[in-house]
Design a protein around this nucleic acid. Structure first.
Lengths: 386, 386
DNA sequence: GGACTTACTTTTGGTGCGAAACAATTGCTG
DNA sequence: CAGCAATTGTTTCGCACCAAAAGTAAGTCC
């Protein structure tokens, strides 16, 4: 914790809830906060005082346009000191390192990617260090770094196992801290995205919330009571053994008819290539399916039915208030959204509450942003339970 | 609240946790309670005092056999005043009313069933009133009544809709209270069983816990953070639209290959009868399958695979710490437990944590006990959130 | 019988909250 | 412009809860 912003931590539970509310929902007056958090006005005075003194919050002048010139003493909105720090979020893939610079409120202010030529831990750390140094020039007040990696991560610091990097027990946080002098948080990429969405995104304030990602693989995250549930198979590839259609296609990766076989981008491309002999990009396949080309349409249709079935199963068993669909592969929804909805209907009780399904097309920078958000969460507001 | 035991309620949060711990885990000393609840010794003195004064708890003499003559001041175990009240639990089926009498600690001390000749609400209430009067003679200190009904129940009091009784908006709690003078709690039967298991049974102290029941129908309940999650389709028949095997059997009830078609007792009997022409009881079918008779073995094998698939799906998506399998149809596990386990393995990641699966053969009296437990929970310890 | 051990009680002090009184700042009205 | 109403924020007080520490009770061990 070499953060220069000093006395931010630790926060009490009440203080943290205030800080999060302001961080997430923008400037808010004390009265408004009291209403939202169900606290008394007096408590708000007490809770906000140390936050203001420690320079995390600040009283901002009422916006230039006082929306409605109300009677009474004007409210004094509180806001986070947005420029009190920027955060870096990295997403490491097999061949590229994606990076975003975000504000304290997780808005992306810059993107910066670099190819990854080696998988040697020290050299990867060197690359991250170099990228950080370059970005530090433009963004002087870097306060922390979040790194998302596909694989199993321990203690938000050590990459226990990463199949595609061929890493075992690499203390990545330490390596990068040494090179940057900044506090570093490492987490599994899916977990980081889920935490970010829980906090700032689709899952804000929800009690039961599920995330399903489609891309190179399948990701799944469950948030209950505002906390992410972690499990053993997480980070070792979800969906490889979720058999959606026992008669489904057999692909190099994943069991026959598994979610991975039916839904991931590499396996969809494999299916099309195996049948037509031509390798096409995912976008091309989607376009062909939309245009009615039978073979791609069949593959995409099967994928859409599988997705709908999965969503229905999650709804049936978890009963979440919302399901977020994210990842590079959700373009599927644009082409075959109707099929997905049909499949959901087919696997749900007609009287069941309709599924609140949100689709969010995301690229690798969104994964990086997830890591940045986790860094904000951990570094600014205190560990926030490992 | 006509309970004669007077000043039980209301309890503070701390008092309630103490009361529940003693209720569920038998006599416990204050020190032991402090350890279990993570409180200081002083707090226990404070919390137990009003409970003892209001006659909910009592200091019992150390059991006649002081397991180990320990050094130091002997502990003073606390226990609930078990005979301070009995509770009735009813389960209403299409043709029978099942009833159990339980102690405050939910031990069944008597069973009493009566055929149900009519579905007229007033007459059903009359029957429950008559049964209560008869039982009151033998069990003088009746403190409350819980009633479990298949169907949709509002506010723990009104049967909103019950398909098999053909009821709509029947204020059952009121009707029975009028006739018995006792406080009455009405709940959906599955919900009551789930609550009971969460409290006294397999789900004790767990954070994520799922219940799957097999019998005349499929029941499903989810407990997160110690609270049961309720949903719209609950009480209107689970599993009718859970398609487990798209190529599965078509039965009069439920969609082709649905959990209901594959797993419920009536539909298993239907399948066997349709194939062999002979109507057999569920137990006969299980015995035949165990003996190797091909047709019953096939039906039971399919059912077992379906059950395993369901359990795996619940594990994959909900990640519960435990799954309880209950109902009249779990005899399946004895005959085809291996097949169930295989199916679970086939649909789970090999590295995933093994499923903690508990099987509990239950008859209608267990459903009735569930209702009684809910009555205990609501009446003794204060509404315990509707 | 004295030393020791364990269980429980009492006391003390701290924390976090709400209720209510109070101060501050504006718009509206006569 | 004075006075009032409306609204926000602050201060003070008291309550509920809890942990820590010190004190008391009731037994065993030598």
């Amino acid at each position: 914790m070499t953060a220069g912003t000093a006395g931010w931590l630790p926060l009490s539970a009440g203080e943290r809830s205030v800080a999060i509310e302001v961080l997430v929902h923008g400037p808010l007056s004390r009265t408004e906060l009291a209403r939202r958090l169900g606290l008394s006005a007096g408590s708000l005075t007490r809770l906000t005082k140390p936050l203001i003194e420690s320079n995390l919050l600040i009283e901002v002048a009422e916006a230039g346009a006082p929306t409605e010139a109300r009677q009474g003493r004007p409210s004094q909105p509180l806001d986070v000191v947005a420029d009190s720090g920027s955060f870096l979020g990295f997403k490491i893939t097999e061949d590229t390192v994606y990076c975003v610079v975000t504000t304290l409120r997780s808005h992306i202010v810059a993107r910066y990617d670099r190819p990854l030529a080696t998988h040697d831990p020290a050299e990867v750390a060197d690359l991250l260090g170099a990228m950080t140094a370059e970005l530090a020039a433009e963004h002087p007040r870097l306060a922390g770094i979040g790194i998302g990696v596909g694989g199993f991560v321990r203690d938000r610091a050590v990459v226990g196992e990463s199949p595609f990097l061929l890493w075992r027990d690499v203390p990545l946080a330490e390596l990068v801290e040494e090179r940057t002098g900044l506090p570093v948080v490492v987490e599994n990429d899916v977990a980081a995205l889920v935490e970010a969405e829980t906090w700032f995104g689709a899952g804000r304030g929800l009690d039961r919330f599920a995330v399903l990602t489609i891309g190179a693989g399948i990701g799944y995250g469950l948030v209950l009571g505002g906390k992410r549930v972690s499990c053993a198979e997480e980070d070792r590839g979800f969906g490889r053994h979720w058999i959606v259609d026992p008669n489904g296609p057999l692909t190099p990766d994943g069991r026959r008819g598994s979610a991975v076989s039916l839904l991931t981008i590499p396996n969809i491309r494999y299916q099309v290539q195996a049948a037509t002999g031509r390798d096409r990009t995912y976008e091309e396949i989607l376009a062909l399916a939309a245009a009615g080309d039978p073979m791609p349409a069949r593959v995409i249709g099967e994928a859409a039915r599988a997705l709908g079935t999965l969503v229905a199963q999650i709804s049936n068993f978890v009963m979440p208030q919302k399901i977020l669909l994210a990842g590079e592969g959700v373009g599927l929804m644009d082409v075959a959204g109707k099929t997905v909805e049909e499949a959901i209907r087919d696997n749900r009780h007609p009287l069941a509450a309709p599924v609140d399904l949100e689709t969010k097309v995301s690229d690798f920078h969104d994964w990086a942003r997830g890591a940045a958000v986790l860094a904000i969460k951990v570094l600014v507001l205190g560990s926030a339970e490992a």
